[in-house]
Simulated assay, not measured.
Amino acid sequence: MSFWRNIAGLAVRRPDAGDCADCPATRPGEDPAFSTAVTALGAKLAKADGRASVGEFDAFAQVFQPDAASERNIHRLYDLARQTTRGYESYARRLAKRYAGCPTLLEDVLDGLFHIAAADGAVTQDELDYLERVSELFGFSPLVFRRLKAVHLGLGDDDPYGVLAVPHDAPDEVVRSTWKAALSEAHPDRARARGLPSEFIEVAEAKAAAINAAFDSIMRERKALALEGVA
């Protein structure tokens, strides 16, 4: 992941640049404020679950892949940042403001943070809360975060989006058209028309019921989120 290696290298050269409130909006790889903020966000994940340990730097380095010549300085910066989670919201807001016009880049940052959180083989609820808050500060909707979580950690067994096989941030019309197509394909009448045994019809009925339940669940959730946004 050369992206992370490059920003880590910039961060150790200008560790205080993130305090600049009016840095130019240059390319991320040339923006020390960007690299410092992302490095701090990654390091503070070590404290998110309340168990910051020296060994966690190894997992951090697997994602950032620092050059050998820079590793000592990166380790120092990491140790300073991981002492507390305080301040991470400020870094997230700074990145969101600086790169508001480039949501793809902010999503890349979240992807990197998910990699760091999962590097030890487990992502705790505290780490998920941290990542969700960063996503919120980046301006992403709950559905976008849910999609990213599914990409990195897999779909939950009861995730209705998995039943319909649509992205979590798919537009309503895409969800609706996918639901109709899936329901038409799985409708029990198709099994009856083909003269299939009753066992096949029972399976089709269960599948159709699951498809309808998934669609209803998605639309209820979206309606609730829309109402929360208005409130």
Rank of each mutant, 00 (worst) to 15 (best):
A118R: 07
L105M: 10
R98C: 09
L137Y: 06
K97Q: 14
V144S: 10
S135H: 07
G121C: 06
D111R: 03
L113A: 04
P142I: 10
L153W: 13
L110V: 02
E127M: 08
E136F: 12
F145Y: 15
C102L: 09
D108M: 06
V134C: 11
L128Q: 07
I116S: 04
G154H: 10
A150K: 08
L137Q: 07
H115T: 01
F140C: 03
P142R: 04
D126M: 10
Q125F: 12
D120K: 00
A119M: 05
E132L: 07
D129M: 07
L113Q: 02
D108I: 00
A118C: 07
G121W: 08
L143K: 05
F145R: 07
E107N: 01
L105T: 00
P103E: 13
V134Y: 04
S141T: 15
A150R: 14
G156S: 12
E136M: 10
L155W: 15
C102D: 13
Q125W: 12
R98H: 14
D111M: 03
R147M: 15
L110C: 08
D108V: 00
V151G: 01
Y130P: 03
I116D: 11
L110K: 02
A150W: 12
G112D: 12
E136P: 03
G139E: 14
Q125I: 12
